[in-house]
Design a protein around this nucleic acid. Structure first.
Lengths: 195, 195
DNA sequence: GTCTATAGACGGATAGAC
DNA sequence: GTCTATCCGTCTATAGAC
């Protein structure tokens, strides 16, 4: 690859990132399903057809946002440690981080965890990002001694439910998020009782 | 009111019900946000403008569906008894009924519990139906000795989460729904421990 | 009460000039 | 790589004839 090509692809990647950033911003305003290519192009100082230089379709833009969203979830929980000696504290911190992550961006939450975009679903490659995210969570719970599949399912339901209620009924508050520690205690007591 | 007027308003009500039934059917196919007045009219053998004889706007149709949806939730749980002597069984049955209700119709679930329709939210009158539904649930939990607001919030999160996971990851199965009894036991043990 | 016709807007995507 | 112009489709809603 010649240096010129290298520079060109770097610029291209930068513009793609700029478009995606603008897409998140517009999705915040209009909802993830309300994103339009005309508005998106205007936001980055282009006309709609020029976007097709960077993405082959609107679906490809959603795909890129989907993948980026799960990367952000990785980052949001990467700093948290797993301490088997303090299972409740560890779990509470992870649940609260998850609820906070969902609350942090309504459209991202819609894109990653609901089927809010009519006629679109993640491509296989994009979907792989979400599978990897789940596998990592399962591994961390394994370090806390939780291996039962039903227990895992119960915990995902609990986390998803706290986030859903927080977003639906108190989007800017902490009413459900602050129940994270209670939820962790409740869940771990159940695990101890039924293992 | 003359007999003729009576007959006329009866027919009108019947046609309205027919339109709503067709609306649910189409929403099942195209998603709640994908409902279009053209298709809806065609489904009942009309053209789109004729619908305006029965509903003043598309939003009014969503409103009527929203209210009907909460009535259906009432009906789905009306047959269930509340037996303080068997709190776990009572709660398990109610949670499972709720998950089954959500699973029974994806678009109804979208309409009632998510903000899946861009630009629409329930009118105040319609919203009152959902408030009444929550109040009834709180009263029934009171009969089981559960009064703490945080406990109520934890239970709504748990129920909503089971339903969300069931719908998102196993829409035609029972993977999360069958955890209803576990969830009830887990929750009630927590209530006993923290009251 | 139902229709045709249409307003008026918005959407994704493509052709072809520059 | 970006543009203008445009295709072709979508939609809700209204006017006015019958």
């Amino acid at each position: 690859m010649s240096p010129a090509t290298d520079v060109r692809s770097r610029r291209r990647e930068q513009t793609r990132a700029e478009i995606l950033a603008a897409a998140w911003q517009l999705a915040e305003r209009d909802g993830i399903a309300g994103l339009s290519l005309r508005d998106l192009a205007a936001e980055v100082g282009m006309r709609a057809p020029s976007l097709y230089t960077y993405f082959p379709s609107k679906a490809a833009i959603y795909d890129a946002m989907f993948t980026a969203g799960f990367l952000q979830l990785e980052e949001a929980t990467a700093g948290l440690t797993v301490e088997p000696a303090d299972a409740v504290g560890t779990l509470a911190a992870h649940v609260e981080a998850f609820v906070a992550f969902c609350q942090d961006s309504v459209p991202r939450n819609q894109l990653l965890f609901t089927r809010a975009v009519p006629g679109w679903e993640p491509s296989e490659e994009a979907y792989a990002a979400s599978v990897g995210s789940y596998a990592r969570m399962a591994r961390q719970l394994g370090e806390l001694g939780i291996h039962n599949a039903q227990h895992l399912d119960l915990l995902t339901a609990l986390s998803a439910g706290l986030a859903a209620q927080q977003l639906a009924n108190d989007p800017n508050g902490t009413r459900w998020r602050e129940l994270s520690r209670d939820a962790a205690e409740m869940f771990l007591a159940h695990v101890r009782r039924t293992t």
